[in-house]
Computed example of a mutant assay.
Amino acid sequence: MNTLELVELLSPEGLRLLDSLPEWRSTDDVVQKVAELRRAGHGPGLVAAVLAQSKLRTRAAAKFGPFASRMLFTEAGLEQATRLQVAAQHAGRFQRAGVQWVADLGCGIGADALALAALDIEVTAVERDEVTAAIAAYNLAPWSNARVEHADVTTFDLAGVDGVYLDPARRDGARRLADPGDWSPSLDFAFGLAARFPTGVKLGPGIDRALIPTDAEAQWVSVGHEVVELGVWFGPLAREGVRRSALIVTDAGTAELTAEADSTDAELGELGDYLYEPDGAVIRARLIGDLVRRLEGRMIDPTIAYFTADQATATPFATAFRITARMPFDERKLARELSARGIGTLEIKKRGMDVDPAVLRRKLSLKGSGSATLILTRVAGKRIALLAERV
């Protein structure tokens, strides 16, 4: 979105038109919608801006729920914004630590600032991109305890604030920036603020773990079994005795696995009746060993994240599969087995095997009305195929 589009959108006519539109559906005819709005007397620039925003609001519902219907977005801002469920977790940390005024540096469209303001925390949201800052100001307008500043976060005056939150930009347009020194602000700048303030930093979950300071709490967050972020927390925002955490967020609530450090590996053992696939946050946090011991299981291979047990135990931290058949991995034998079982619908999962599921699926020539999960992995170093069903 450029400045001219934003001016069109923020005009009284633009906001009235946007709010009057029904929820955008993927089946809607864009050409027909444009023609209808043009016939109603709206200019081409306004129509383009309003329809683009209507589409973004529909997409944003997955992150912001009903709040999306009164917010504004940019394409990049929506992609990078913290989900409201997760932003509420961030805000709760500041509240429990007694922080009363937070500077949200690099606030984007204002998702985290919104969650902080909703807990009656004073928020100064700082954004260097002019259009994005204006969008954030619109989104935060209902909260009198939140203000937006269009400024460079590295030179912004932090006098008076008693907590800081940052989400460094890790892209330059479509290009991902590999060097943390090139991020905006740089990782050194972000972590350096922890010497002055209780600080939280949002990072990508795949960051080099060697960059995580030893005195910080590192929390990997999974939403709907997708790992969405790593939160690094300093000072009173980091919990006593917690340096590694896997937070699982679902519609049913949250669950968390914590430890003082990476967990030690669990023992290896024979393949049992059940196979477990840990949530990605547990894997990233390196807490698999603790989870295996909690579920009285055992690892199947020292290099594979799957583990096994003789019984099924409900847990939010892993998905359980009941093994119905096991065999050495051989495409022809596997095809015969699936044919004999009448399997026509097959979910394919793999770890530790160089197999293209799409290519394998074509070779198997699946026919039948049955369904199953095929798990391709290594057990004690040997390639194995497991037929299973989700518990």
Score class of each variant (00 low, 15 high):
E277R: 07
E277C: 01
P278L: 09
G280L: 10
A281P: 08
I283S: 11
A285K: 08
A285P: 09
L287Q: 07
L287S: 06
I288C: 01
D290A: 15
V292N: 03
R293N: 12
R293M: 06
R294I: 04
R294C: 02
R298Q: 06
M299N: 09
M299I: 04
M299D: 01
I300Q: 02
D301V: 08
D301Q: 08
D301G: 05
D301M: 02
P302S: 04
T303K: 13
T303N: 11
A305I: 08
Y306V: 04
Y306Q: 02
F307V: 04
F307D: 03
D310T: 09
Q311M: 10
Q311D: 10
A312W: 12
A312K: 05
A314D: 15
A314F: 12
F317W: 09
A318N: 08
T319W: 01
A320G: 14
F321A: 01
F321C: 03
F321K: 02
R322W: 04
I323L: 14
I323D: 03
I323K: 03
T324F: 00
A325D: 12
M327A: 11
M327K: 05
F329G: 00
D330L: 04
E331T: 15
R332K: 15
R332I: 13
R336K: 15
R336C: 08
R336E: 13
E337T: 15
E337S: 13
E337L: 13
E337R: 15
L338G: 00
A340M: 10
G342R: 09
G342Y: 04
I343N: 05
I343M: 09
E347D: 13
K349T: 07
K350P: 06
K350G: 00
